[in-house]
């Protein structure tokens, strides 16, 4: 297990290097003069800048250096905690991102809870009553959940639960430690919208895992011994199908982090993804780079943890 953990950790390094390289190179794709873009000027501002000021900008931004030197300088700065200054707020990018990070994590974690609360009972019901009404209903939910875009689902839920019934707020945020009840009221809709597609995906996966387990000899043996069905379903079949599903859960966390851009914008949720979008609208490139890097690094680390957890939970793998 320790060997596996060490080799899995080592695998993360090249992936993270390429991730940082992609994030760094994103800036080379930006159309227009990179000096003006990185300094926060529009193309029309070139006329108002003297050659001396322009050269000073090139020097300050390090753009007179070859690209590989700039990459290593940028990477070094990232490790030192110098992620640049946001062009819009003039505050350090890292400070801005850290202030928004908890909101994104609360949302992703709540959406994951929604995913599990929906997927587990639905998949058990579907597998237990295969090719009967509960199965068809669960599978219809799964196909619809995968087909309805989360922004449309969000709009419909806002229309029903906020505008018509007035039960839940359609926008805003409350701190979970200062106002826990308000926080709950605000997070329900975004978490359901974000978690629905992942729940659909996981329901399909868990159902097929359950069906596979229910066909195994040890389940037949358990029935033959006269064990109660609930025990067989939960303790045997479900637990074993969950082990294989853990990897899928890890991948779904990526969907949640990627999907959170839309949900944070739709519900005015003040997380990193909303900050990324605000950065895009105001062409604040240091902020864009920082936000993309934070979200991608979170995903890589979560998947690393999920992989290690998977190895640790499954005794067949742990003792092999």
């Amino acid at each position: 297990m320790l060997n596996y953990a060490a080799s899995r950790l080592l695998q993360v390094i090249p992936v993270m290097v390429i991730v940082t390289l992609i994030v760094f190179l994103l800036m080379s794709l930006v159309p227009g003069d990179p000096v003006l873009v990185l300094a926060g000027f529009g193309p029309e501002d070139r006329q108002g800048i003297s050659q001396e000021q322009y050269d000073a900008l090139v020097n300050r931004l390090g753009l007179d250096q070859p690209i590989h030197v700039r990459y290593f300088q940028w990477l070094g700065n990232i490790f030192r905690g110098d992620w640049g200054i946001s062009l819009t707020s003039q505050r350090p990018v890292l400070t801005e991102l850290l202030s928004r990070y908890p909101a994104t994590i609360y949302l992703a974690a709540s959406a994951m809870l929604v995913t599990l609360f929906m997927a587990i009972p639905l998949s058990i019901l579907a597998a237990r009553f295969q090719n009967k009404i509960p199965d068809y209903s669960a599978m219809s939910f799964a196909v619809l959940g995968l087909s309805i875009p989360n922004f449309w689902l969000g709009l419909i839920l806002i229309l029903v639960f906020s505008l018509h019934l007035g039960w839940l707020p359609s926008i805003g945020y409350a701190d979970p430690f200062d106002q826990p009840l308000e926080f709950l009221r605000h997070i329900i809709l975004p978490a359901v919208v974000l978690g629905a597609a992942s729940a659909a995906q996981l329901t399909r996966y868990l159902r097929s895992g359950m069906l596979e387990q229910l066909g195994e000899d040890y389940i037949r043996m358990a029935y033959a011994k006269g064990l109660p069905e609930l025990l067989i379903m939960f303790k045997y079949a479900f637990r074993n199908s969950l082990i294989a599903a853990i990897t899928v859960i890890g991948l779904e966390i990526g969907q949640l982090l990627g999907g959170s851009t839309i949900v944070e914008v739709l519900f005015g949720w003040p997380g990193v993804a909303k900050m990324l979008l605000d950065g895009i609208y105001s062409r604040d490139f240091p902020l864009i780079q920082g936000a993309v890097l934070v979200l991608a690094a979170t995903y890589v680390l979560v998947n690393l943890l999920v992989d290690l957890l998977y190895r640790w939970i499954d005794p067949r793998v742990r003792f092999s």
């Binding site: 992936v15 993270m16 390429i18 991730v19 992609i22 994030v23 994103l26 794709l29 966390i253 990526g254 969907q255 949640l256 982090l257 990627g258 999907g259 851009t261 839309i262 990324l276 979008l277 895009i280 864009i288 993309v292 979200l295 991608a296 995903y299 890589v300």
Partner: peptide, 11 residues
């Protein structure tokens, strides 16, 4: 390693 739609958004 880039979650879902994030890479598309960044590009």
């Amino acid at each position: 390693a880039f979650p879902g739609r994030l890479l598309a958004i960044a590009l």
